[in-house]
Design a binder for these strands. Structure first.
Length: 277
DNA sequence: AATCGTTCCTGATAGC
DNA sequence: TGCTATCAGGAACGAT
């Protein structure tokens, strides 16, 4: 499932490929992934548009267009953005095709959106327009706004379970189930501990470990558990470095005890009862 | 205000 | 073999 490192990897693997390309046409095989405006208006608005560059905010991908409009994409669980030749056979779960023209060479390529579960979504925003989910995002955990003071303030304030707090995009942007489990294991904190029960030492450890895990995963080009691929169709590598996520029943690599699994906020959560307090 | 359950959706897997 | 049930889960939404 794409979280911050996976979305960042898609951005990095796609940006140079689409920069300067002209949108020649589009096909909507599963129009329901286009949330705003209507698919018809979406197609109309894209006439003659040029991709200028890309950005990322939390788990959202941003495509900056020549007109000043922004195409926003969220991959949710199983979304994939693939850059390929128009000759590539149509994939089973193909939802959208953008045909992109390179004016220098006259070549056309496809930017395709695939999504097995169809949870992903696209929005086309006019200049100055925003989305509730995007606007309310908390600070980027790899950015300067994510400070120890911020984390301390936001946690000591909350009675909810720390795992649920880490998944709350309004508190910190971009952490999903994989990296929530990984950070809590590395910080030695039980996932069901209330936010306001964390000690100062635990908050400091968490503050150090969050950017560390995310950056390590970006360096390994993300985690591929089942579906995630980058824009070249390549798997990530960080699944080989996971210490706790999806390892219930296995031995903890730190103490050797059996890794446990529980549900927190409706999400499966793996933890080591020995190493996490 | 905060927290909970439900919804969207398909595929892998378990159990009979 | 072939059926049904369960699970995977991000975020919007409604209910409490």
């Amino acid at each position: 499932m794409p979280e911050l490192p996976e979305v960042e990897t898609v951005k990095r693997s796609l940006e140079e490929k689409i920069k300067g390309k002209v949108v020649q046409g589009m096909e909507f095989l599963v129009p329901q992934v286009i949330k705003r405006p209507t698919p018809e208006e979406f197609r109309e608005a894209f006439q003659g548009e040029v991709f200028q560059g890309m950005g990322r905010r939390g788990k959202y991908l941003l495509f900056y267009l020549h007109s000043g409009k922004i195409l926003v994409s969220h991959l949710r669980m199983t979304g994939q953005l693939i850059y390929c030749s128009p000759e590539t056979p149509q994939e089973k779960h193909l939802c959208l095709i953008f045909s992109l023209l390179d004016q220098a060479t006259g070549e056309t390529n496809h930017l395709r959106y695939l999504d097995i579960r169809r949870f992903g979504c696209f929005y086309l925003l006019n200049p100055g327009e925003t989305l509730p989910g995007l606007e309310k995002l908390g600070p980027e955990p790899l950015g300067v706004d994510f400070t120890l003071d911020y984390l301390r303030k936001v946690l000591t304030n909350k009675k909810g379970k720390i795992k649920a707090l880490l998944l709350d995009q309004e508190l910190i942007a971009g952490i999903g189930n994989i990296y929530a489990d990984e950070t809590l294991f590395r910080a030695g904190i039980m996932p069901d501990k209330p936010g306001n029960a964390l000690t100062e030492a635990e908050i400091i450890r968490l503050y150090q470990v969050i950017p560390q895990v995310l950056q390590e995963s970006i360096d390994k080009r993300g985690t591929t558990i089942s579906d995630y691929l980058d824009s070249e169709g390549k798997k990530g590598d960080f699944q080989n470095y996971l210490q706790i996520y999806s390892r219930a029943g296995e031995a903890c690599m730190n103490c050797g005890n059996v890794i446990q699994k529980t549900k927190i906020g409706g999400r499966s959560s793996c933890f080591c009862p020995q190493c996490q307090k």
